[in-house]
Design a protein around this nucleic acid. Sequence first.
DNA 1: GTCTATATAGTGATAGAC
DNA 2: GTCTATCACTATATAGAC
Lengths: 210, 210
Amino acid sequence: MVNDKMVNETMETRIREVAQELFFKQGYAATSTTQIAKEVGCTQALVHYYYRTKENLFRQIFLEQIEAALNVISRSLVSEESFENFLRSAISLYFDTLMQNPRLPYFVLEELVSNPERRKYLREHFVKKPGYVMLYMQLEARVKAEQQAGRLAKIDAFDIMMSVASLTVFTFISLPMYQDLLSRTDEQVREFVHHRKEEVTRLVLQGVRA
Amino acid sequence: MVNDKMVNETMETRIREVAQELFFKQGYAATSTTQIAKEVGCTQALVHYYYRTKENLFRQIFLEQIEAALNVISRSLVSEESFENFLRSAISLYFDTLMQNPRLPYFVLEELVSNPERRKYLREHFVKKPGYVMLYMQLEARVKAEQQAGRLAKIDAFDIMMSVASLTVFTFISLPMYQDLLSRTDEQVREFVHHRKEEVTRLVLQGVRA
DNA sequence: GTCTATATAGTGATAGAC
DNA sequence: GTCTATCACTATATAGAC
């Protein structure tokens, strides 16, 4: 068997995979269930048979992705290393993870920015979960400890998060523009991401130092 | 006359203004010419009478906004000050300008990311214009001069641009999430942006120092 | 310049045959 | 489980009356 995964796939999962790909590329509004069906090679009715509504299909994919992303972030926050090495490996993890799924940041952002319902949904499901609150408080405590030890500039934990998020997420969001506007090959794009990872790490480390 | 601007407005300009507002809020795909007409208070046929197609209407707005943004960036790059003060006032200008139009970054990004045609269009119209190439080369020369004088870390001009863009643009893109997920008031959002402007300036200045 | 009316096509979703 | 057929709706765009 050349491709176990493909061969054993059910229609239900194939629809989901194709839908994800299209939602990632085009966003929710610009993707129709007809297009999904066409790309899968089934009828449009089947898409609705399995997922009933387009919104429902989307929501499953969306939640799964958010959950996966939050897991990566959670794991990155638990660290026994020095604060500098913690930052270093967190940034590295974010870049490496997103490199395997470069469209994810834009996909999540698009839906969260343009659809207030999705933000509400996200808040209910995740933000107020005690686990995440705890993690943030731990980070905050750690930042304060570092500052008292004189190793860290006077910055909020939230600002560190925002800056790292900005520098990481924007890199991936801007990739299609970088590639097209400057006529870069896929290989050059990969090099660019790697280069940005190094530079972002350098900038953040030097920028938060006391 | 209470409102000169409103009173003297033609239908053509009103349609354009309303269209811009809706495109900003919802994006191209999610906005219909019917909705635009309804909000203007005219028939949908009139929208097409003035602009023929929805794509055409959008394109005029899009180009105008891009042009305005590029003008701001261009002006910020011409500076007689020290490099540090140049960075300081550029970042300040970007934040202040975008604060008057917080949805602009997402609007531009959305269309450039999800529509390859728009990127092509942008490249034809702007990227290869000699004026912009010149400006970038001047920035590059300045960066090299600063490095030889030992005042600047070993960074590409392009990396400085990317980092500043990331930290600035992402701030505004994430505002709806910041506001909703953390239940912030409009006033708190304004404070947050102001705070980020200070912190981004601090981070960049410390981060690029030799 | 602005309207009504309509052509044409695409959408999400469902009913019912097999 | 998968299909065909179809409904109700909305979309963009245009033709033609006023």
